[in-house]
């Protein structure tokens, strides 16, 4: 049976906005699907400038994933080698999606300026 669609202007507006949102979402997902690479997660760690805090010295850590897959259960070890001792801090991140970054901080008792900061072993799984 044929009859005209009975819709008021509000309903047409809601439909229009919904259609635009849906098409935009689909377009983005299709583009994402087409351009997606297949490289495993590739994690890059960068250390910032240490800052003096009450507990010691705080070092900003930026962890980025340049691969095409999410890194899961990511753990980054950062070591501070001083002349007398060695300090180790571990930063864990549950999920690091592709082309994303997370900021974190590690704190050492010793002064990083008097020693050497190193990014130690980095481990992660791919879900």
């Amino acid at each position: 049976m044929k009859r005209a669609l009975e819709k008021n202007s509000l309903e047409w507006t809601v439909f229009g906005v919904a259609l635009i949102l849906l098409v935009a979402t689909l377009a983005h997902l299709v583009r994402e699907a087409v351009t997606a690479g297949a490289s495993p997660p590739e994690v890059v760690v960068q250390l910032g400038t240490p800052k003096r805090v009450e507990e010691g010295f705080q070092v900003p850590v930026t962890v980025a994933n340049r691969g095409d897959h999410t890194a899961e259960d990511l753990s980054v070890t950062i070591t501070l080698a001083l002349t007398a001792e060695r300090e180790e801090a571990v930063l864990t991140i549950a999920f690091l999606p592709p082309r994303s970054r997370r900021d974190g901080w590690v704190t050492f008792r010793g002064d990083p300026r008097g020693g050497e900061l190193q990014v130690g072993p980095v481990g992660y799984a791919s879900p």
């Binding site: 309903e11 809601v14 439909f15 906005v17 919904a18 259609l19 949102l21 849906l22 979402t25």
Partner: peptide, 16 residues
């Protein structure tokens, strides 16, 4: 057609 329009509206509302 109406069913389709309604379904699009619902998906849009869901996204928002």
């Amino acid at each position: 057609t109406e069913v389709g329009i309604d379904s699009v509206e619902e998906l849009g509302l869901g996204l928002v």
